[in-house]
Each structure stands twice: as structure tokens, then as C-alpha cells.
Design a protein around this nucleic acid. Structure first.
Length: 567
RNA sequence: GCGCUCAUAGCUCAAUUGGAUAGAGCAUCUGACUACGGAUCAGAAGGUUGGGGGUUCGACUCCCUCUGAGCGCACCA
């Protein structure tokens, strides 16, 4: 929380005898700036004081009227609308950002705490398509948000690197694979082979048996199977890291399904010790009726092998023991809701107190992301098209990029194109299904990533032309324009937006804020000239410009977006 | 059949978690300075918040019901 609201909050806390925290939660901007800067709704006091909210508002307005911080307090119906003295508020805010820099908006609320994030988690030897975007980007942004709140963050990629599909991949390669092709285009080649396997298995039932045999060999440590698996896994990770680098996302560990193989026996024994298992149709299950779930969790199949549920229990226990997390977030699509309810319920029945600190951060489907041929759109295809579209605009701006080296132009196009895609997946609440369209994905006007980055580039441009960054305190008394004031108020919101985004696991809060801030700036930019005014006014505005640049850059960073200085 | 999620302007999304006259962008139409970058700004038009009940000072928000959509319901992940 910023100090800027402190005078306002303490004043109302005193007048109403409410806790400061409660007051902070109640204060809100009025529907229109003409009504005032902040509003205090009096409904909660009505019951306690046995008076109508309007009456309370009227009395409260009398009590808090004008002092150092507040210029006026007017009762409008059940609200007390407050107008602030702009200068002290602005002065405090600018000073705070000047002192804290990129740390403005961060907090220490997560100090000493640990959050584990499980996200992205694709299957190995498969293409990285746009279906993986949501988990990857939401997880990536949440990582940064929690780190910003002081948490120790552990980012885990629960890679799909085990199970019968691996046996199928080995079988396909042994039959039709090409070593040099594998070296040149490992993923593409493996995808071709995998698809061929599924085409041919209908006419050749022996293939499935062969695949099971290869997987059995892999499980029992057969050298040939193991070496092939390791090679495919390693090139898959290389390929994935390339995609993650484009998306500005990183992981602390690839702990795939294979990693937990050695723990499964012990895991099953632990579940059995809890006395919650049953044998049903030859399978070992955990009935969950007591938790209101009709479908049991399957611990071991009737053929004796295990499935994902057992591995997820093992993974959860591993994370609890090794990281002692305060929060374990699974950023996984909505389809797996039942599975996670089963998993968490089982962990609770096992008596783990940390089970209730596990959360399924689910998100909706993105529909219509298939190509005409029926396959999914590849990530690179989407990013490349976005980047090329950006290049058209950049190339049209001859004057700005005249002396800029080609490599730097490439960098800008990449930053903006990828930024547009990232922003596109974060600017709506994660639970709702969305419709993908190329028109929308490649529209860079209005509420988009480029709009926010463009505002940042203009801010940088002003600062570049001004020469040195503004230092020291500005004469904030000169910042009297409404557009300046609106921008200042918008800047002050940033810390609570970050807090909100963490509390709800909603990066979209930050995305929405970034647009609001960028808009407040462009309105200011349109109405207030910075350079070439009276030196003192120019300096004051420059100070506001630099503050805005810092905050917009922080917001973009939290969204895993780059902050180009020109575009 | 049961469960989860969703339904807001022509389209894509908001709405400070129960608060003031439901707001933005896209598309459409109209306008903008020989000044810091027009990927911009200002304005117009666009709504019975899927339908119907209920809860209360107040409901897009909570409850019930109906309709529609997406997803999931034991050996895939």
C-alpha cells in the first residue's frame, strides 16, 4: 500500500471509528471524476449507528471538511465525496516512485513464504501449439506477481515425459525413423512418426503390443530404450526452452512424470496406510463420497500399472516435503477440474494439512484455434505472423528507424508482436472461454498490448529528447491540469492492483490496469505539452512522465512483456 | 442423467466482489493542432445484463427455476 492514501484513510478511520484497513477497503473512486476524487460509502455504518446512510454521510461530511489533505467533502446521498488537495498527494506519489523505482508496487507480504507454480507442462516430442499459451502465460505472469510480493517462487514444468505414448514414439522411430532427419528437425520428425503410428495401428494391431513392450523395456531400465528416451526428452526441452524464451517465461525445474516413477510404490503404500483405499473391479481406488465426489480416484489400474493420479499425489508430496510451500498452484485448463478435486480430496483424507493450500487455477478454453486442415496453430506461426504484421508498421516509419541497425529492428518487432499475443491471452478473466480470431489477434489498435507499449515508447521518447532524467523534487504546485491529476490518481492505484491480481490469481487485473494507465497517459500527452514549456512546469511534467514510464514498465514486466523504447 | 464453468452493445471483453446514471475496445459514422511519435485523441450511435421468480434500503453480482453454450463424469493426461 502506498503512503499517498494515508492521510485520507486515517481521517475517515478517526471520524467513523472504523479500522484503517476497513476504511481502505471502502474508499473507491466515484463513477465520475466530476463528483470528486474519492468516495466513502456509508452503508456499513447504517446498522451500527441506526441512522440512514444519507444522514450519516451528511454528518460525516461536516466532520471531515477541509484540512491539509482534503479540499472538500460533500455528501451526495449515501456517499461522502472527497476532493483532495492535489499537490501533497502528487508530491508524495512522485517521491515514492523516485525512491522505490521499479520496486514501487511491490510488497513484502510474501516474505518468508513459498509458492509452487505448476504450469505449461506440455508433452514431450509434441509440437508447442497455441493451446499451450494460456497455461504458460498465466503461469509466467503469476510467477512474476508472486515474486513481486516477496514470495519465493518455484516454477515447475510437469513435463509429460512418460507413459504409453513414449512407447509408441520409440516403436515408430525404430520402424520408420531417420537418424539424420531426427538431428535436423527432431520435433517435426517425431510428430510425423507419431501420426503415422496412429494411422497404421488400425491395420496393424501388432503395433500397440510393440509399443507396450518398448515402454515396459523403458520402465525396467533397458539401455537402448533409456538412451533414446533421454535423447528425445533432451531435444524436446531444448525446443521448449526456445519457445519459452520467446514468451519471456522461465522454469526452475523440469520435473516431469518420469521423475516420480521411483516414488510410486511408496506413495501407494502411504495412501493405503491412511486406510482410505478399496479394491474395485481389480483396481485400487480411493472412494471420495465422503468429500461429495462420486467418482473415485484410481490409484492403480486393474492391470497393475499406475496412472496420472498416483503421480500427481507423489508430486504433491514431493513439493510439500522439499519446498514446504504456503501455496501450490496448478495452472491447468478447466477440463481437469474433477481430477484436481479428486487429488486434493485424497490429500486431505491422507491427513495432510497442506492439502488445503493447493489450488487449481483453472482457465477457459480458447475455441477456434485450428487451422483449416484441422491441426492446431503452432505457436511459432502465430508469433511470426504477429511479428511480421508489426514490421509493416515499423518499416513505414522511416524517420524513426532510419539509423537503427537491423538487429535492433528485429528485436522491436519481436517484442511488440509477441507482446500483442501475450496481452491478448491476459486481458480477460481466465475462467471464461474465448473465441480466437486472426483479426483480433493481429489487431494492434485500441485495448491491446501494442497500445500499452506504444505509450511506453512515447514516454521514453520524451525523456530521450529532454536529455537527463529528472532528478530531485518537482514543483508539483504547477501540475494543475485535470489530465495530470487523472494520471496521478491512476498511478497511485498500481500497488493495490498488484495485490488484487495475486489474491485472485488474475493477471488480467494488471493487463486491464496497464490499458487504463496508458490511456490516462495518452490523454495527458494530448492535452499537456511537456517540452518547451516554462522550465519549472516542464520539469514538473517531466517528473510525472518519468514516474509513468517506471510504473508502465513494471506493469508490462509483470505481464511477461518487453518494454521497447521505440517502436 | 449427474457435476463444473459460462451467458452483458452487431463482435471481443469490463464493472472496485451487493452500491451512485452498466463502462471500454473493434466494426460503423463525424471531427482533430505546420508543437514532445496519428499503433493517437475528441465526439455520435449502439443495452429489458439469456427468460421468469425470490432475498433487501439497493442485484450484472447472492438463492431457486427454465433456456442455451463449453467441458467433465473409473482404469488417457
Amino acid at each position: 500500500m502506498t503512503r499517498v492514501f494515508a492521510p485520507l484513510i486515517s481521517l475517515f478511520a478517526e471520524a467513523t471509528e472504523l479500522e484503517e484497513r476497513e476504511v481502505a477497503g471502502l474508499l473507491c473512486p466515484p463513477p465520475s471524476a466530476e463528483l470528486g476524487d474519492f468516495a466513502f460509502p456509508c452503508f456499513v455504518l447504517a446498522k451500527r449507528l441506526r441512522k440512514s446512510p444519507a444522514q450519516i454521510a451528511a454528518e460525516l461530511a461536516e466532520r471531515v471538511d477541509s484540512n491539509d489533505a482534503i479540499a472538500s467533502a460533500v455528501a451526495v446521498g449515501p456517499y461522502v465525496n472527497v476532493r483532495l488537495h492535489r499537490a501533497p498527494f502528487t508530491s508524495t506519489l512522485l517521491e515514492e516512485v523516485r525512491n522505490q523505482g521499479e520496486q514501487f508496487g511491490s510488497s513484502s507480504s510474501g516474505n518468508g513464504k513459498c509458492v509452487v507454480l505448476d504450469f505449461s507442462s506440455p508433452n514431450m516430442a509434441k509440437p508447442f501449439h497455441v493451446g499451450h499459451l494460456s497455461s504458460t502465460i498465466i503461469g509466467g505472469s503469476l510467477s512474476r506477481l508472486f515474486a513481486y510480493q516477496g514470495y519465493r517462487v518455484v516454477r515447475i514444468n510437469h513435463l509429460g515425459d512418460w507413459g504409453t505414448p513414449v512407447g509408441q514414439q520409440i516403436t515408430a522411430f525404430k520402424r520408420w525413423g531417420d537418424g539424420t532427419e531426427l538431428d535436423r528437425h527432431p520435433i517435426a520428425h517425431m510428430v510425423d512418426l507419431y501420426q503415422r503410428f496412429h494411422r497404421e495401428k488400425a491395420e496393424n494391431p501388432g503395433l500397440e503390443e510393440e509399443a507396450r513392450e518398448w515402454f515396459r523395456k523403458l520402465e525396467t531400465g533397458d539401455k537402448e530404450a533409456r538412451e533414446f528416451w533421454e535423447h528425445i526428452r533432451s531435444v524436446s526441452i531444448q525446443e521448449l526452452n526456445r519457445a519459452y524464451a520467446r514468451l519471456n517465461v522461465e522454469f526452475d525445474a523440469y520435473l516431469g512424470e518420469a521423475f516420480y516413477e521411483g516414488m510410486l510404490q511408496e506413495t501407494i503404500e502411504e495412501v493405503q496406510k491412511a486406510g482410505i483405499t478399496e479394491v474395485s473391479d481389480g483396481a485400487l481406488i480411493v472412494p471420495l463420497d465422503s468429500k461429495g465426489i462420486k467418482t473415485p480416484l484410481i490409484l492403480r489400474k486393474s492391470d497393475g500399472s499406475t496412472i496420472y493420479a498416483t503421480r500427481d499425489i507423489a508430486a504433491a508430496r514431493y513439493r510439500a516435503e522439499n519446498y514446504r510451500f504456503d501455496l501450490c498452484l496448478y495452472v491447468v485448463a478447466h477440463d481437469q477440474e474433477l481430477h484436481f478435486r479428486q487429488l486434493f480430496a485424497t490429500l486431505e483424507l491422507m491427513g495432510y494439512d497442506w492439502a488445503k493450500r493447493c489450488v487449481h487455477v483453472q482457465f477457459g478454453h480458447v475455441h477456434g484455434m485450428s487451422t483449416r486442415k484441422g491441426g492446431a496453430i503452432l505457436l511459432d506461426e502465430l508469433l511470426d505472423r504477429a511479428t511480421e504484421k508489426v514490421r509493416e508498421t515499423v518499416m513505414a516509419n522511416q524517420t524513426l528507424f532510419r539509423d537503427v541497425p537491423a538487429a535492433e529492428i528485429d528485436e522491436v518487432c519481436e517484442a511488440v508482436g509477441v507482446g500483442a499475443v501475450i496481452f491478448g491471452t491476459l486481458n480477460h478473466r481466465r475462467t471464461k472461454d474465448v473465441e480466437f480470431s486472426w483479426d483480433n489477434a493481429l489487431n494492434f489498435n485500441g485495448e491491446t498490448g501494442p497500445y500499452v507499449q506504444y505509450a511506453h515508447a512515447r514516454l521514453c521518447s520524451i525523456l530521450r529528447k529532454a536529455g537527463d532524467e529528472p532528478r530531485g523534487a518537482a514543483n508539483v504546485e504547477l501540475l494543475t491540469h485535470d489530465a495530470e491529476w487523472a494520471l496521478v490518481k491512476e498511478l497511485a492505484r498500481f500497488p493495490e492492483v498488484v495485490e488484487e491480481a495475486c489474491a485472485q490469481y488474475e493477471p488480467s487485473c494488471v493487463a486491464r490496469y496497464a490499458v487504463d494507465l496508458a490511456r490516462a497517459f495518452t490523454v495527458f500527452y494530448d492535452q499537456c505539452r511537456v517540452l518547451g514549456e516554462e522550465p519549472e512546469l516542464s520539469a514538473a511534467r517531466l517528473s510525472l512522465v518519468n514516474t509513468t514510464r517506471v510504473v508502465i514498465s513494471s506493469a508490462l514486466h509483470l505481464l511477461c512483456m518487453k518494454t521497447p523504447e521505440r517502436m
